[in-house]
């Protein structure tokens, strides 16, 4: 990228700033001590450089990545000396040992049927040993539940990881007694999806959960309050891309929807209105405005919002846009 500029400046400025490099290395965004510009990592040269003036803030940086290179998965398996990273998504953080399923010995030869039976038994006992007590079994079930619902909702790995952490926190703060494992797992997943700006509506989550909606909502409020999770109100615009793609609508509609929503927010008519309803109405309105008509009932089906709500919000959105124009 900006390699050329880096090289020209770095050589003559290096000596002067060696003693100034102590500028708080822990912060996420470093600023240049000379001009206050943004500092980026230049991995090729092992330096941190200011984008604006080219000042080298740090040199001889350590590359913590692997020293080997692999070009396909076989090579990677051969060269890598570590296992998978630990994860909160597994009850043992993925740290315990598994007996392989291949039924092959160290030389890659198949086992005899006697041996195979023995390995099968060992596998079973290993599995039982891994989850010895009820606590671990419950945790395993909860995390499995989170995984299952997240898959059904198409939520990314970060959301699952966060949900698992929230569940573990609830567990360690003794919030589980009196509530169902599934309930807390569902609430944790909903909260983490909201926190990571990929919200799913309550209806969607309740549909894939094994508990009923009332219990889910109640548990969610309880968990959020007790763990002080600070879940900001969902932004209707965050629902728009998903709904638009579910309805096979082009980018144009999406863009128009965002406009409508931000107009409505500026006008202050969104207070207390369900973000899902607003998103649904914005999609409907912008599909009409851009000649990609979908019907209210189609939108209603995809978004789980009633047609009446769509009509009401639709009016308010258009009025707000008129007021803005």
């Amino acid at each position: 990228m900006s390699d050329s500029t880096i090289r020209t400046y770095s050589s003559d400025q290096r000596q002067t700033d060696n003693d100034e490099t102590v500028s708080t290395p822990d912060e996420d965004v470093l600023t240049c001590p000379e001009c206050g510009g943004q500092v980026i990592d230049d991995e090729e040269h092992g330096e941190s450089v200011c984008v604006d003036c080219g000042l080298v803030v740090e040199e001889n940086g350590i590359d913590r990545g692997p020293e080997w290179r692999a070009f396909n998965s076989t090579e990677k398996d051969e060269k890598s000396r570590v296992g998978a990273p630990t994860t909160n998504m597994m009850h043992d953080k993925g740290l315990s040992t598994n007996i392989g399923w291949q039924d092959k010995d160290a030389y890659g030869n198949s086992l005899s049927s006697n041996q195979r039976q023995k390995m099968q038994r060992l596998r079973k006992w290993n599995e039982r040993f891994r989850t010895r007590n009820s606590k671990e079994r419950n945790l395993k079930q909860a995390l499995g539940e989170i995984e299952r619902m997240a898959s059904a909702l198409g939520l990314p790995k970060e959301v699952r990881e966060t949900a698992s952490v929230i569940y573990r926190r609830a567990l360690s703060e003794d919030l589980l007694p009196g509530r169902s494992i599934e309930g807390v797992a569902t609430a944790a997943l909903y909260a983490s999806a909201r926190q990571l700006s990929t919200p799913r509506s309550i209806d969607e989550v309740a549909n894939v959960s094994r508990i009923d909606e009332m219990e889910f909502k109640r548990t969610y409020r309880y968990i959020v309050r007790e763990l002080s999770l600070e879940v900001a109100p969902a932004d209707p615009a965050q629902y728009v891309p998903r709904f638009a793609s579910d309805l096979d609508l082009p980018d144009e509609v999406e863009r128009r929807s965002r406009e409508l929503i931000s107009n409505a927010q500026a006008d202050g008519v969104t207070s207390g209105k369900s973000p899902v309803g607003l998103a649904a109405a914005a999609i409907y309105a912008s599909s009409l405005l851009t000649n990609h008509k979908v019907t209210q009932s189609e939108v209603s089906e995809v978004t789980d919002v009633s047609e009446v709500t769509i009509r009401n919000r639709y009016q308010e959105l258009l009025e707000a846009t008129e007021a803005a124009a």
Partner: peptide, 15 residues
């Protein structure tokens, strides 16, 4: 402050 209030417009329109 989100820790002092409860606002879930999906569930209830009031704060």
């Amino acid at each position: 402050g989100l820790e002092n209030i409860e606002y879930e417009p999906e569930q209830f329109p009031g704060l």
